[in-house]
Structure formats: structure tokens, C-alpha cells
Design a protein around this nucleic acid. Structure first.
Length: 357
DNA sequence: CGTAATAGTCATGTTACGTCA
DNA sequence: ACTGACGTAACATGACTATTA
């Protein structure tokens, strides 16, 4: 049984996390949609606003320095961009996979409306092409589960709404509605985003939230490649938990969705705990067997002593005897102590050990 | 300061898929 | 080809914490 536990190790930082801008740009790509607000620093998906916070090495949350550095907002914030690029089949054409790129089932099978596919086309939301979505035009490789927004034939759609007057950003980077009236609107929008995200999840699984959706499609399960598993294992050895930045970085490196990385770590921790439980169980079982044997032996010894008592009543006149465990050989040693018995025929010296190795 | 709302993470249990003997 | 066991990805749920209004 193999068990690798790394407890108490100082988490090592991810080297890739040094590339803040790069990973930040990738965040929205990983999501498959993006939603930006106000100034450039607000180009953060509201769903991932808390990703701006991270835990420090001691596990305590701390505010990302990027947030505090965003205290000087762009004086002329552009309108918010809500680029909704769900994995809806009707919204995209199959992204041509690079020759060296792995093929992922949720892209090849589930997301693309293949001829003969029973996937019902999803009615696109309000379509209004964006003039430029800079974050998705940085020439980086597409991440699994993401779209190819700049594909002119893709038919991708985007929202373009002005939310800059609706939201305001807190000191820690969170987004909040600036007015009470906007709260309701915000709620509606957040619900919309949530619905879209759920739809993305459902699409990425190739099925619905239920086991079998209305089209009779069951969810497909991704099998991680050996390389991906090995990389995740290495990361797990360094630290068994992830902060949002590490999750994002790993997802980017492995061409996985952050959710997949998160799930993998959760399952990995569960497996580790299960193995540890099995090890503990085995150990306790051995302890139990040892104690059972010891108990049996002591019972036998007790019977012998009782028999001796019956046959030799005079034996009871001996000083009181206590049994102690020899620490070196773990055998019982008899130790006698002086008592006040006056009829003791053979006084024994106090605390004389009668055990011999 | 206390509280409600919200969002994120985690542990835990379950389900369902892929693989293999 | 079929089947059951097994590993595991994905999900559901509740608890907990942090943050903000």
C-alpha cells in the first residue's frame, strides 16, 4: 500500500503565478465568457471576483496586491462588456483543434453541434458583436472548454451593456451594486450569469443537471491523461490545497477547467484520507490482536496463580505482589513490596524485581 | 458592534463513466 | 460480446469562514 502524506510542509509558490497579467487574462478565457466592468482593473468576471483574494501560505486570506493597486481607476471607464460565450452548440462552430492539441470530449462530443446530434439548439441570448474583446485576442492557445471568440465563422455572441453605473468595486475588488434600484437589476443579471454557467457546466458534461436530460444524453466523464495526472500529483505533493491563483495556473497549464482542478484536489484529498484511514485501521487491528493475546496470556497466568493459591495456602502469606511491565522486553515482572503482615515467614526485600531477562 | 447576505472552500457521500480482467 | 469489480471524475450537500452592506 502506497501512502504519500505531506503534512506541514511549507507550500511552495507556483512559478507560473509570477505571470500575473497572463494568468489574469486567461481567467476569462477559461470561463468561456467574460464580464468586465468600468476600468481596466474591473475586467474581472463578477463570478470570480473572489478569486482576487487569495490565501497566504499560512492559509489566511489576504487581499491581492492587484486589488489595492487598482485604487487609481481609469478616469474614463469603458462600458462593461459581458461576453457570454457559453458552450452552447448553436453559438459556435467546432474550434479547429491544433495538431498538437489534445482533444477533449466536452469539446468534441458534447459542445459541438454535430450533424445528427440530438442536442437541441440553444437560443442565443441578445447578440451584439463586440468591437474588440482584447482579452480573447491575445493569441494564446484555447483552453479546453473555451471558445474561439474571434473566429469569424463561429457565430459567437456577446452582450454589450453599460453596467459601469450599476456596479462599484469595493476595496478588496468585489463588485456591488451602487444603488438599491440596481440591486434588483444586479440580481437578475447575476441569476442570468448563474444560469449561463450552469448551462456551461451541463454542456461541458454533455448532459444536464440530471442524470439524463431531455435529449436522452448522459454525461460523459473526462479521463485525465497520464501527464495531467502526474502534474496534479506533483502539485498535490507540494500542497494538498489550492488557492484560487494556483488553481487557475494549474488549470491553464493542464488545459483543464479550474473546476476540474478543484474537483481533482478534492477527490485526491478524499483518497488520501481514505488510505490513511485504512492504515490506521490496520494498525488498530494489530494493536487489538496484540492486546487480545496479552489478555489471553494474563488470564492464563491468573488461572495458574489461583491454582497455586488453592494448592499452597501458605503462599498467601507472602508480601503483596504487583505486576509491572518490563519496558525492555515488554514482559510482566513481579515486584514485591513490604507489607505489614506480621506472619510473614520469609520477609522479602522491598521492591525486589523477580524478573530476569 | 451585531447581523444578514453572499461567495468561496472544504469534507463527505453519492453517482456514473471508463477500464480491465 | 458480456459482465462485474474497481478507480475516479463529477456532482450534491452541509458546514465553515471571510467580506461587505
Amino acid at each position: 500500500m502506497e501512502l504519500a502524506l505531506s503534512l506541514g510542509d511549507t507550500p511552495k509558490p507556483f512559478s507560473i503565478l509570477d505571470h500575473h497579467n497572463r494568468s489574469q487574462q486567461q481567467k476569462m478565457k477559461d470561463l468561456g465568457f467574460c464580464m468586465g466592468l468600468g476600468n481596466r482593473n474591473n475586467l474581472e468576471d463578477i463570478h470570480f471576483k473572489n478569486m482576487m483574494r487569495e490565501k497566504d501560505d499560512d492559509g489566511h486570506r489576504k487581499t491581492d496586491e492587484r486589488i489595492s493597486s487598482s485604487s487609481s481607476p481609469d478616469p474614463s471607464p469603458p462600458p462593461l462588456q459581458l461576453d457570454l460565450l457559453p458552450f452552447s452548440p448553436v453559438l459556435r462552430s467546432p474550434p479547429p483543434p491544433p495538431p498538437s492539441h489534445r482533444c477533449f470530449p466536452w469539446l468534441s462530443k458534447n459542445l459541438i453541434a454535430e450533424p445528427g446530434s440530438q442536442t437541441k439548439p440553444v437560443k442565443p441570448l441578445e447578440v451584439k458583436p463586440l468591437a474588440a474583446v482584447s482579452d480573447q485576442d491575445n493569441g494564446e492557445e484555447p483552453v479546453a472548454g473555451e471558445s474561439s471568440p474571434n473566429n469569424s465563422n463561429s457565430g459567437t455572441s456577446s452582450f454589450q451593456m453599460d453596467f459601469s453605473s450599476i456596479f462599484k468595486r469595493s476595496n478588496s475588488g468585489r463588485l456591488f451594486p451602487s444603488r438599491k434600484r440596481d440591486l434588483e437589476l444586479t440580481t437578475v443579471n447575476l441569476e442570468l450569469v448563474d444560469v449561463i454557467e450552469r448551462d456551461q457546466r451541463a454542456c461541458s458534461r454533455g448532459g444536464g443537471m440530471s442524470d439524463e436530460d431531455e435529449n436522452g444524453l448522459t454525461r460523459k466523464k473526462l479521463r485525465l491523461t497520464k501527464e495531467q495526472s502526474a502534474f496534479l500529483e506533483d502539485s498535490f505533493k507540494e500542497h494538498s490545497t489550492l488557492n484560487p491563483k494556483q488553481k487557475q495556473a494549474l488549470a491553464k497549464q493542464l488545459n483543464l477547467r479550474p473546476r476540474q482542478v478543484e474537483v481533482w484536489f478534492q477527490n485526491r484529498r478524499a483518497r488520501t484520507k481514505l488510505k490513511q484511514t485504512e492504515v490506521d485501521c490496520e494498525y488498530l487491528k494489530r494493536c487489538c490482536e496484540t492486546l487480545t493475546d496479552e489478555n489471553r496470556r494474563l488470564q492464563k497466568e491468573l488461572q495458574e496463580l489461583r491454582a497455586l493459591k488453592t494448592s499452597q495456602p501458605f503462599y498467601m502469606q507472602m508480601p503483596a505482589t504487583t505486576l509491572t511491565m518490563c519496558p525492555s522486553c515488554e514482559r510482566v515482572a513481579t515486584t514485591t513490596t513490604t507489607t505489614t503482615t506480621t506472619a510473614t515467614p520469609r520477609p522479602q526485600p522491598a521492591t525486589t524485581g523477580s524478573h530476569r531477562h
